[in-house]
Design a protein around this nucleic acid. Structure first.
Lengths: 183, 183
DNA sequence: GCCTCATATGTCAGAACTTACATAGTGGGC
DNA sequence: GCCCACTATGTAAGTTCTGACATATGAGGC
């Protein structure tokens, strides 16, 4: 099963949902660490159904097709519980870092602006997450503790990113000032 | 052009290289923020050549095919310089965060072990990066400043991840202790 | 009455990425 | 003498992901 499959099972541990609702849950609250469009979600739900990890309940929908509500099954819970303790795969792909690596190939003043924006955006995101965190419990027994834990990583990451981007922007600003105009 | 194309152009700003050498540079030093195998790199180099962003010099190679050394062109440098100041795309996909979100669906003692390992691995990575950082200059005028800047982000990220994973592990440990055995 | 938005589910083409297969010379260890 | 690792370049099959196309109802604003 793909990681998307496990992501959907994870979302379904919070209660049954339609593909449409799962697409929304994918954006919020887990959008800050996982993204997927509905064009990926619908086929994956069909696969999960075939594998017996979810159950479907069909009703008349608003459009030409039936509305399908998915519920996680015992098999789905077992698959999730086995996957979770395994070492997480990590495929690093950070455009922010890549642009930093190549920073010498562009105008330092423009790159300073870029990293000032990155710093501001990251700080704004951290503030939003902080507000969301206030509505959750720091208690592993609470059903939404996972939301709390994931959100804390988001805050940590955005703060770190902001601090780093500020540092880089100031370095570039200073350098651009010393070497401005024709060089 | 894909981000991989820009990544290759970035690597070529450090000097001409073969596809094989670029595959190695992709692993180190930029592997901690961008990954690509040779099976992706070779076709992309062909595309870059066709677009005029790189130039090829052919020699006899060890195998049945010619050894090709690539050099970035003026057009390639211009394309890179235009791409760099644009806001970086960010597609969040973190399995570590996803597993934290679903943490309640697995055994807390096992998940504590997982996050202890994540914390240890992240700290070890940070230490390796720190050693590499010592060989680089904190000077925007230095040709390898990009390596320095990107490495600092890596250290910041790994330290933040380690701190977070330690926090989560201790929460889960305590919870597992309070609710151990049959529950 | 018309327009837009939300609900709801799908397909399709193309891009990007992964894993494995394929070939061949040189140098070093045992 | 044999095996392995390194240099070196490609292809092929399959999976995953992105962005666009396609359809249809109900509710609310104007």
């Amino acid at each position: 099963m793909s990681t998307l499959g496990y992501a959907l099972l994870s979302l379904l541990t919070r209660g049954p949902a339609t593909g449409y609702e799962l697409t929304r849950r994918m954006k919020r609250p887990i959008g800050h660490f996982w993204v997927a469009n509905h064009s990926q979600i619908y086929p994956e739900l069909a696969r999960l159904t075939e594998a017996g990890h979810v159950e479907v309940h069909e009703e008349a929908g608003p459009g030409p097709r039936a509305k399908k509500t998915y519920t996680i099954t015992g098999s789905g819970r077992r698959a999730l519980a086995e996957w979770l303790p395994q070492p997480p795969a990590f495929t690093p792909r950070s455009e922010v870092a890549l642009k930093a690596y190549a920073v010498g190939a562009a105008d330092p003043a423009r790159m300073a602006v870029l990293y000032e924006e990155v710093a501001a955006d990251a700080l704004a995101k951290a503030a939003v997450f902080e507000r969301e965190l206030g509505e959750l419990e720091d208690d592993p027994g609470h059903p939404n503790f996972g939301n709390y834990a994931a959100l804390r990583l988001g805050i940590e990451s955005q703060r770190g990113l902001s601090a780093w981007a500020s540092w880089l922007a100031s370095r570039l600003r200073k350098y651009a000032g010393e070497h401005d105009g024709a060089d």
